[in-house]
């Protein structure tokens, strides 16, 4: 049952890393003296890292997984990025000219 043991460990690592990253994100927001800009960057980075960790450890996406799944996720991220980025760009520009 070494197979099972290794997989068990993977879930545990995933959970622990996620917990750590979450705590880090909470900490920068609650701690005094961290500038808002810095805090946002750290929260964002911790979020992205945690998503990567969970994709790897819980959803088993990665080098050993089926390539298709990985491509699908990357492509989806590209399109979601285009839509979100485009929306923010357009609406900020609009907002800036509405005064």
């Amino acid at each position: 049952m070494t197979d099972a043991r290794a997989e068990m460990r993977r879930y545990a690592i995933g959970a622990i890393l996620s917990a750590v990253l979450t705590l880090a994100a909470f900490w920068v927001v609650l701690a005094d003296g961290v500038a808002r800009g810095t805090a946002l960057w750290i929260v964002g980075a911790a979020g992205v890292a945690q998503i990567a960790v969970q994709l790897r450890c819980f959803l088993h996406i990665g080098s050993a997984s089926k390539r298709e799944d990985l491509h699908l996720i990357l492509f989806s991220a590209l399109l979601a990025g285009l839509m979100i980025g485009g929306t923010i760009w357009i609406m900020t520009s609009l907002h800036g000219r509405m005064h």
Binding site: L79, L82, M83, G86, W89, I90, M91, S93, L94, G96, R97, M98
Partner: peptide, 18 residues
């Protein structure tokens, strides 16, 4: 085709760069 949608509302008021 996922990068052109704004051409349906060029006149909405966003900046020239966009």
């Amino acid at each position: 085709s996922f990068t052109v949608w704004l051409h349906h509302f060029f006149t909405m008021g966003q900046g020239a760069r966009v």
